[in-house]
C-alpha cells in the first residue's frame, strides 16, 4: 500500500485517540498525588515570621514574598518587598514566569493559614518548585513582629538578636506602609518593573 495512505491513517488514528483523551493534562496537576502528599507532610516548606523578618531586613534578593489577599487589603498594608497575586488570580498565565523561577524562594502569605497553604499546594502540584508558606500569615506577623515586647531585667544574646530583627522589620513595615498613597503607587510601580525583568521570556 502507498506509504502516504499509511502515514495518513496513522496520524488520523493518533488524532482520534487525542480527541478522546479523558482529561486535559495541561489544566491538571503535574505531580503525582503521593509526591504532593509527601511534600505537603514535610515541615521544610514552612518559614516562621522571624525567618521572613530576617530576610526582609537583609533585603534578600533570592526570595519573593507573594501576598495572596485582595488588592485593597494589600494596598492597606503588606510586608515590604512583597508582590500582590490575589488568590483568585493565581492561575493567570501572567504569573507563570514568576512561579517558574527555580532559584528564587517564593513565600506565600495571606491573613491566616488557609489561603496560603491552598495556594502552596496548587502551585507545588502544578510542578513549580521552591515554594514556601509563611506560617501563621499576617495575623502571626502582627502578633510576633509588630506587637511583641520583651520584659524582664535580663535579656539573653539570643533574645537580643531576635528583638533586633523584629524591631527592624517592624520599622520597615511601618515606614513603607505609612507612605502617602502617591508615593506608595510609585513604590509599587518600581516593584512591578523588577517583576517584569524576572519574567524574562520572549516578549
Amino acid at each position: 500500500m502507498d506509504a502516504r495512505i499509511k502515514y495518513s491513517l496513522l496520524l488520523v488514528g493518533i488524532g482520534i485517540i487525542l480527541a478522546f483523551l479523558p482529561y486535559n493534562a495541561t489544566d491538571a496537576f503535574r505531580l503525582k498525588s503521593d509526591e504532593l502528599l509527601s511534600k505537603s507532610a514535610s515541615e521544610e516548606n514552612y518559614l516562621s515570621v522571624d525567618q521572613v523578618a530576617r530576610m526582609v531586613n537583609k533585603e534578600d534578593s533570592t526570595i519573593m514574598l507573594i501576598d495572596l489577599r485582595e488588592t485593597a487589603q494589600f494596598k492597606e498594608c503588606n510586608i515590604p518587598g512583597s508582590i500582590n497575586i490575589p488568590f483568585s488570580d493565581l492561575l493567570n498565565p501572567w504569573w507563570e514566569g514568576t512561579f517558574n523561577q527555580k532559584k528564587i524562594k517564593k513565600i506565600f502569605y495571606g491573613n491566616g493559614d488557609q489561603t496560603a497553604n491552598c495556594a502552596w499546594a496548587i502551585v507545588t502540584g502544578l510542578g513549580y518548585k521552591n515554594s514556601f508558606v509563611m506560617k501563621g500569615g499576617l495575623n502571626e506577623w502582627f502578633k510576633t513582629v509588630m506587637l511583641s515586647q520583651f520584659r524582664g531585667e535580663k535579656i539573653t544574646p539570643l533574645e537580643n538578636a531576635l528583638y533586633e530583627t523584629r524591631f527592624n522589620a517592624r520599622k520597615a513595615f511601618t515606614q513603607i506602609n505609612s507612605l502617602p498613597d502617591s508615593l506608595k503607587r510609585q513604590y509599587f510601580k518600581a516593584k512591578e518593573i523588577k517583576q517584569l525583568k524576572l519574567d524574562g521570556g520572549c516578549q
Binding site: 491538571a28 496537576f29 498525588s33 504532593l36 502528599l37 505537603s40 487589603q73 495571606g110 491573613n111 491566616g112 493559614d113 488557609q114 489561603t115 497553604n117 491552598c118 502552596w120 499546594a121 496548587i122 502540584g125 499576617l138 495575623n139 502582627f142 502578633k143 509588630m146 506587637l147
Partner: peptide, 30 residues
Amino acid sequence: ASRAWVILNQLGYKNLRILTFENNPEELKY
C-alpha cells in the same frame, strides 16, 4: 487541613470541606 483538602479535591472527591472554629479564619485581626 488545607493541603489535604487541595490534594483530595484534585483527586476528584466532591462534598469535601474543612472544619473551622472561627467564622472567618482569613480575617486580619489587627
